[in-house]
Design a protein around this nucleic acid. Structure first.
Lengths: 344, 344
DNA sequence: TAGAAATATGGTAGCGCTAACATGGTAGCG
DNA sequence: CGCTACCATGTTAGCGCTACCATATTTCTA
C-alpha cells in the first residue's frame, strides 16, 4: 500500500526558543557539557566554557529553568508566606529575606494568606509543588494538614515573627515579654490606669500575646488591665478612633498602650488635633519602632522590633542549612529594644 | 554467563512523594484521566472524578507543578519586577497585582532591581526561564537587550507607573502632568517663590518628570523654579533635612514642593519641631496621597496616585489577554487627584 | 614506568507530567 | 439502520534538562 500509516513525529515544542541542545551544537560539544559550562563551570575546560558562552550569546539562549528543576528535582525558589502585605512589618521581613536570597541566586515566591490558615495550607501545597528549596512562613499557627506537609517535606522551614514550639527553624522575638517590658516601663513612669488597645486579635494574635504580657505585669502589681478591641483595619484612622473610644469608656485612663505604632501614631496625631497634651492629659505607647513615631512631637515611646534583621537571619539560617552546614541554634531570638520617647 | 550486565534501571526519583501515576493506580484509572480529573474536571465523568480525588487524599498527593509546566509549556507565574521594596508606592502596586492574580490562581514571582536596569534584564531572563505567563515591570526604561527579550517573548508585558512609549501594555499616570497640576495649584494660591526638593532623580526619574512639569508651569508664568536634590534615601529624615536645606539656600522661599509625601511629611513634622507655622512661614506640598499626610495638622496638600488600582488594572489587562479576549486599550491612564490640605 | 588519581567529555535514561492522537461506546438523526 | 457527533478514557511520545555511569586523556605518585 502506498498510503501507509506514517507514525509522524508529533512535534509539540513549547516555543521556538533555542534549547540547550542547539547551543551545544553551535559550540560543537554535547548537551551535557553545555549544561556543565553554565551550571558548574569549574568542571569544564576554560576554552570549552568560552565556546559555550559564545554560542549562548549567538543563538540567544535563555535556560529553561522549569526543565532544569524537573531534572534535578530542585528549584531555586524560596517560598515566603505572610498574612498581609498591608502591614509594614511583613514588608520589612520580606525585604530582609529578599536581599539575602537574591544575592545567593534564589527567587522569592510570595504568598499572602490574608490571615487565613486554610489559605496558608493551600499556598504550602502549591509551593511544594514548585519544588521550592525552603519555606518561610509567618507565625507558628497552622492547620494540622499544613503541619504535616511542612514536617514531612524534608526542606528547611523557618517560622518567623514569634518564638515558640516550632516545626524546624524559628526566628523571632518574644511578644509576651515585649508586652511585659512596656508595661513595666509604664509602671515605672508612675502610671496606674492603663488601657490596651488593639485591632483584630483573632488575626493578629501576636498583639494578643503582647497584651497577655502587659496584663500579667499589671496583675502582679495588683492593677486592672482593661482592653479595647477595635473592629477596623489597623492604621492611623483606627488609632484616632481608638483614642476616642478610650476617652469615652475610660475617662480616667492615664496611658494607652497601643498594639502597634500605626495605631499609636494615629492617636498621637489625633490628640494634637484635639488639643490634648501628651503625656500630661494622656500618655501613649506603641510597638514596632516605626520611623514615624520618632518624628512626631512628642516622640512616641515604643518597642523597636528588628524586622529586616529577622528576614536576614531567617535567610542565613536557610542558606546554611542548604549548604548542609548544620545550623547550630534552631531557635533564634532577635530581641527587641525599648525606645523611650516623650509620649509617656 | 551467570553474571550478565544487568542494565539496572537507575532510579533517581527526586523525592518519595507520590506521583500522579500512583494516584491513578489507586483510583483504577490511567494517569491522563487522573490528570484531567484534577485540571479539566469537566472532561471526566463525575464518579471517576470523585474516585480520583479520593485517591489523591488517600495517598497524600501533591501535584508536581514543575513537571506540569514543562509538559504544558506554561506556568501560572506572573513575574513582577519593581525597583525597590522600601517604597510604599511599589508595595501597594504589588498588593493590587497580588490580590487580583491570586484570586485567579496565579502566583507572583517577585523581583527587585534596586533601580538597576541591568539587574532588571537579569531578572527578566530568569523569569522567562520559568515560563512565566506574563510580566509586569515598573517603568519604561530598560536595557536594549531587555527590550528585545520582552518584545520577542510573546507573553503579555505590562509596564506600570508611568505612561509613554510602551512595549506592549501600559498602565500608569502622567507624572509630568501631575507636576504641572501641583504647580498650577501653588500659583493659584498666590505663591511665587517655590523650591522643588527631591532625592536621587537618577533613580526615581519619575520625580524628575514631575519636576519638569512643575518648572514648565512656573516658566510659563515667568518664574524661576529652583531645585534641590538630597543625597540620602527618601524618608521622613530626608524631608526634615530638605526643609533645612531650603531655609538655608532659599530663605525667601514661600513653598516647598516635595517629590513625595514621605519627604513632605518629614518636613511638616520637622517644621512643627522648629515651631514654624505652616503654611504662613513656609508652605509644603507633596505627592502620593499617603494616609499620613491627611492625619498631620495641617493636612498635607498632595496628589493622590491610585497605586493599588494601578496594580489591579494591570492584572486585569493581563488576565483578559491571557483569556485571549483582545485588550481594547493598550494604554490605560489611571489618573490622579489633587488633595488640597491646609499646608498650602 | 606502571598504576592510581584527577580531569574532561560523552551517552543514556529518566524527572512527572500533559498534548496529540486513538479507541470504543452511546446518543442523535434522517 | 447506517451515519455522524460526541463523550469518556487510554496509549504514546515527548517537554528540556541533568543525574548517573562510562570512557578517554592527562597528570601525579611511588
Amino acid at each position: 500500500m502506498s498510503n501507509q500509516e506514517i507514525p509522524r513525529t508529533r512535534r509539540r515544542r513549547g516555543s521556538d526558543q533555542p534549547t540547550l541542545k542547539e547551543v551545544a551544537e553551535a559550540a560543537g560539544v554535547s548537551a551535557i557539557t553545555a549544561s556543565r559550562a553554565l551550571n558548574t563551570p569549574e568542571r569544564v575546560n576554560e576554552t570549552t566554557r568560552q565556546r559555550v558562552l559564545e554560542a549562548v550569546e549567538r543563538v540567544g539562549y535563555v535556560p529553561n529553568l522549569v526543565a532544569g528543576s524537573l531534572a534535578s528535582a530542585r528549584s531555586r525558589f524560596i517560598a515566603v508566606i505572610v498574612p498581609s502585605l498591608s502591614n509594614t512589618v511583613f514588608i520589612e521581613v520580606i525585604r530582609g529575606l529578599q536581599t539575602t536570597f537574591e544575592a545567593h541566586g534564589y527567587q522569592i515566591l510570595l504568598g499572602n494568606t490574608d490571615y487565613d490558615i486554610e489559605r496558608e495550607h493551600r499556598l504550602v501545597r502549591t509551593f511544594l509543588g514548585w519544588s521550592c528549596s525552603a519555606l518561610v512562613t509567618a507565625g507558628l499557627r497552622h492547620t494540622a494538614a499544613c503541619r504535616d506537609l511542612l514536617v514531612n517535606c524534608d526542606k528547611p522551614v523557618v517560622e518567623v515573627m514569634e518564638l515558640g514550639e516550632a516545626l524546624d527553624l524559628n526566628v523571632g522575638l518574644d511578644h509576651r515579654e515585649a508586652g511585659r517590658c512596656m508595661a513595666r516601663h509604664l509602671l515605672e513612669r508612675g502610671y496606674r490606669r492603663t488601657v490596651f488597645v488593639s485591632v483584630g486579635t483573632d488575626r493578629d494574635y501576636r498583639a494578643a500575646m503582647r497584651y497577655d504580657g502587659h496584663r500579667e505585669v499589671l496583675a502582679a502589681a495588683g492593677l486592672d488591665a482593661p482592653f479595647i478591641e477595635l473592629d477596623q483595619p489597623s492604621g492611623l484612622d483606627a488609632g484616632a478612633a481608638g483614642l476616642d473610644r478610650v476617652r469615652d469608656a475610660h475617662p480616667a485612663a492615664e496611658v494607652v498602650h497601643f498594639a502597634n505604632d500605626d495605631l499609636a501614631a494615629g492617636a498621637l496625631l489625633h490628640a494634637q488635633r484635639l488639643g490634648l497634651r501628651v503625656p500630661d492629659d494622656i500618655a501613649i505607647a506603641g510597638f514596632n519602632g516605626l520611623p514615624l513615631g520618632q518624628h512626631i512631637t512628642p516622640r512616641l515611646t515604643t518597642i523597636r522590633s528588628p524586622r529586616e534583621t529577622m528576614g536576614r537571619r531567617a535567610a542565613e539560617q536557610i542558606l546554611r542549612r542548604l549548604d548542609d552546614k548544620r545550623v547550630s541554634r534552631r531557635q533564634l531570638d532577635v530581641g527587641f529594644e525599648l525606645l523611650v520617647g516623650e509620649s509617656t
